[in-house]
Simulated scan of single mutants.
Amino acid sequence: MPTAPEIRDPAATDPLRTRLAAAGVAVVTVGAGLGLRAVTAGDIAKYGGDALYTVLLLTLVVVLAPRVTPLRAATGALAASWAIEFLQLSEIPGELSRRSTVGRLVLGSTFNPPDLFWYAVGAAAGYAVHTALRSCLDAGGRRGRRAVPDSTPGGHR
């Protein structure tokens, strides 16, 4: 017996709205990182910056792939952060850091094991923010709009 098509909210999968929200969070994240460095020093600035680095990577993942789930975005950002940290065991980031401020900001220069933990903290925080913003975007899109049936075969995405 055929089933009724799944009702899907068009705003829930609107990539432009998602990209704009992610870009806004990226700007706020960069501002938070710069602000943290301006008002603190030492471990707070260092490890807070590490966490925010991963949050920024997560927002960039969402800008590039707006339909990515929060878990996949967080996992991808964490994997990239860890890969860059482990790359610091080689001479490549150190050499690039000596030649370029951007290289130093993006790749760092020295492997530091505690950074791995703080990247995970950033991924968890980014996951929570992504999940919350996704719920807000979905809820905002449902207000005053009529949901439409999913046109995919069988009503599945």
Rank of each mutant, 00 (worst) to 15 (best):
R17E: 05
S109G: 00
V39F: 13
G122S: 08
R17Y: 02
V27M: 13
R19N: 03
A147P: 12
L137K: 08
L116Q: 10
V25R: 01
G126Q: 14
T152G: 00
P149M: 08
V27W: 10
R157F: 11
A32H: 01
T110L: 03
P66L: 04
F111N: 09
L71N: 10
G24I: 03
G94F: 02
G94V: 01
R146P: 00
P10A: 07
A128L: 11
V25I: 11
R67N: 06
A4P: 05
H156G: 02
L34R: 08
M1K: 04
A83Q: 07
P113N: 12
R134H: 08
A73P: 13
D115S: 11
D150K: 00
S151R: 14
L64N: 05
R157G: 07
R37F: 06
T18R: 15
G42L: 03
G141R: 09
L89R: 14
D43Y: 05
L34D: 09
T18P: 00
G108H: 11
G108L: 05
V106N: 02
Q88F: 02
A73H: 10
R157Y: 08
L60M: 14
A73D: 09
G103Y: 07
L107I: 05
A22T: 05
A132H: 13
T152P: 00
A123K: 12
P66H: 05
G122R: 13
F86N: 01
I84D: 10
L58G: 06
R134C: 01
V62I: 15
V27C: 13
L34V: 06
A77L: 01
A32G: 08
R17Q: 11
P10Y: 05
G155P: 01
S135I: 04
K46Q: 11
L20C: 13
A74D: 10
L52P: 07
R99P: 04
L96D: 11
A4G: 01
L137T: 01
I92F: 15
S109A: 14
I92C: 05
V28M: 14
A125K: 07
